[in-house]
Design a binder for these strands. Structure first.
Length: 564
DNA sequence: AACTGAACTTAGAAGAGAACGG
DNA sequence: CCGTTCTCTTCTAAGTTCAGTT
């Protein structure tokens, strides 16, 4: 019932939008209950001890809390990394009393084992709870969601995406992040800015506290914000993807991509021309745009050095990230890319390019150091300004959306045969989906794992051989035992290798992650909806519940002859 | 044009829950 | 039925874009 209501008003609001919100306002009425704060720290029982230099030591509450953050991560690779340990220890010391500070001077002498065991036991106990106990917790959670998980925006009850404030903990950056291990501090009501409409019932801060600010800004979509202490950036509480405001935005995004479809050939012709320009900046712009279009590279903003992991996108590529081969494996003008992109995911690719692109790249690299920018006359704002002139609303990321969506549509047309049955149809859909393949990431990672495993295996085999020799010559208990261990190691490793190889051949499986991302963010859902309607395939075969909620606008809107 | 901050989208990791196989 | 595996959900980091300021 709620869903129906939702649809009706949603389509109405589409019709209204132009009249009603031309001033850039996002809503008229907004009411919510504010955020849910992280539960307060519960001190450890006395039998769970911390040891320093072999001796038990009772920590002050604030030092203990931070210690538990580390203890909870003890099994994680992070805690072995130097930067993580250094950052953690520095921030931990800030939470210590002066006495603790003078005693605890070396992280290597800290023993968090009992704490770690205690938390593991707790997790285990939670798993072992009876059905009734679990149900009780579930109901309590449900109650919180009912109270805090929804808001009222312009006469609609909408789900909120993240209504819980991020709990304190240790910062986990991705890749080689210089700030990993730093203490993410606890957020208090005094840090919180509330956004709601004046005429709404304002959320109340917890007893005895106050909000930092209550504002009424209807030019933005967020309900709650605070400033995070690691990077100093602002965090927001916003609505769920199923909400009207997010759905409209998503729809708009795909409409822009469809606009691009109409003029992409013109734009391509233009950048081909620009490869010949007299001006360096125009050539660089044209080559970068070619990469973005052809390889689905991200725009690549410049980043502050030392604040984040060293990753790049198109505009921020450096000379060291590409290699030029006038000829390679029988192909002419091959460019090899090797760099870390978003989330420090490695991008590795070899592609043949037009001679003109190749010559341009040679020119851009001339008399530069490896760490110099490849496109020294270009950045994302220059590029996007140019794109804006080529088409209203065009930015670098539209190319990813456009290319992913158009490929899905083409592949679906090509791969679906009318006579095949329902399961075969779904297989065709998955194949089409797979063809989109924005990134070779998971394959790449798997191959690295396989290579590593092969190496381990051959090393283990060598050891086994020498152990065999030892056992034969010595005939003693010790060498016989050693032989057994080696045998087991080889068996284990070859088992693991086999598993990995099976995974690798199972294409379905290992592109799942990249697939999920493109399904959620790059593929116009109306293409899939239309396909389902055309072939009588249930939409739930393609989209799970969450996805159907997010794409409700498309399910409602697209009929079987929708064309991207 | 360069810089900065704000707002919003995109992303993988981790945790929770459902399904599967012995 | 229970442990394992697969799938979905949640969490929050890491991008892009845009607007305002110098």
């Amino acid at each position: 019932m709620y869903l129906n209501l939702h649809f009706i008003t949603f389509s109405l609001s589409l019709r209204w939008e132009e009249e009603r919100y031309t001033d850039g306002s996002k809503w008229r009425f907004l009411e919510h209950k504010g955020p849910v704060f992280a539960p307060p720290y519960e001190p450890l029982p006395d039998n769970v001890r911390f040891f320093y230099d072999g001796k038990a030591m009772k920590l002050s509450e604030s030092a203990e809390e931070v210690a538990t953050f580390f203890a909870k991560m003890l099994d994680h690779e992070y805690t072995t990394k130097d930067i993580f340990r250094k950052n953690f220890f520095k921030d931990w010391r800030k939470e210590m009393t002066s006495e603790e500070k003078s005693k605890i001077t070396d992280l290597n002498k800290c023993n968090f084992r009992e704490m770690s065991e205690y938390f593991k036991a707790q997790t285990e106990a939670r798993k072992q709870m009876t059905k009734e106990e679990k149900l009780k917790i579930k109901e309590e959670n449900e109650r919180i969601v009912q109270e805090y998980g929804f808001c009222l925006m312009d006469n609609h009850k909408e789900r909120i995406g993240n209504f819980r404030i991020e709990p304190p903990g240790l910062f986990r950056g991705r890749g080689d992040h210089p700030k990993m291990g730093m203490l993410k501090r606890r957020i208090r009501p005094e840090d919180i800015i509330i956004n709601c409409s004046k005429d709404s019932k304002h959320p109340k801060p917890p007893p005895g506290t106050r909000w930092k600010e209550v504002r009424h800004d209807n030019k933005v979509t967020w309900l709650v914000s605070w400033t995070e202490n690691i990077q100093g950036s602002i965090k927001y509480i916003m609505l769920n993807p199923s909400s009207r405001i997010k759905g409209e935005k998503d729809w708009q995004k795909y409409e822009t991509a469809r606009q691009l479809k109409k003029c992409v050939e013109r734009i391509r012709a233009q950048y081909h021309e620009d490869w010949k320009s007299k001006e360096m900046r125009i050539r660089q712009r044209a080559v970068a745009l070619y990469f973005i279009d052809k390889l689905a590279l991200r725009a690549g903003n410049e980043k502050e050095e030392g604040e984040t992991a060293d990753t790049v996108g198109c505009c921020s590529l450096r000379v060291e990230h590409i290699k030029l081969y006038p000829e390679l494996d029988g192909q002419d003008y091959v460019v090899e890319f090797d760099f870390l992109g978003k989330d420090s995911i490695r991008y590795y690719n070899k592609i043949p390019v037009e001679k003109r692109v190749f010559k341009n790249l040679q020119l851009f690299m001339e008399s530069k150091q490896p760490e110099d920018d490849l496109f020294d006359r270009l950045n994302t704002s220059i590029l996007n300004k140019h794109l804006q002139e080529l088409m209203e609303g065009l930015t670098a990321k539209v190319f990813r959306t456009y290319n992913a969506s158009i490929t899905l549509q083409q592949q679906l047309k090509q791969l679906t045969s009318p006579e095949e049955n329902a399961p075969a149809k779904i297989l065709s859909y998955n194949r089409a989906n797979r063809a989109v393949n924005l990134t070779k990431k998971s394959m790449q990672n798997l191959q690295t794992k396989i290579d590593a495993k092969k190496q381990q295996l051959s090393a283990a085999k060598k050891e086994l051989k020498s152990a065999k020799v030892d056992a034969k010559t010595m005939h003693d208990e010790k060498s016989r035992k050693a032989l057994e261990t080696k045998k087991k190691a080889v068996a284990r490793l070859s088992d693991q290798l086999m598993k990995l190889e099976v995974q690798a051949t199972d294409r379905e499986e290992n592109k799942q992650i990249a697939l999920g991302t493109s399904k959620l963010n790059y593929l116009d859902p109306r293409i899939s909806v239309a396909w389902c309607k055309k072939w009588g395939v249930g939409i739930e075969k393609i989209y799970n519940k969450t996805q159907r909620e997010k794409f409700a606008w498309a399910i409602d809107m697209a009929d079987e002859d929708f064309e991207f």
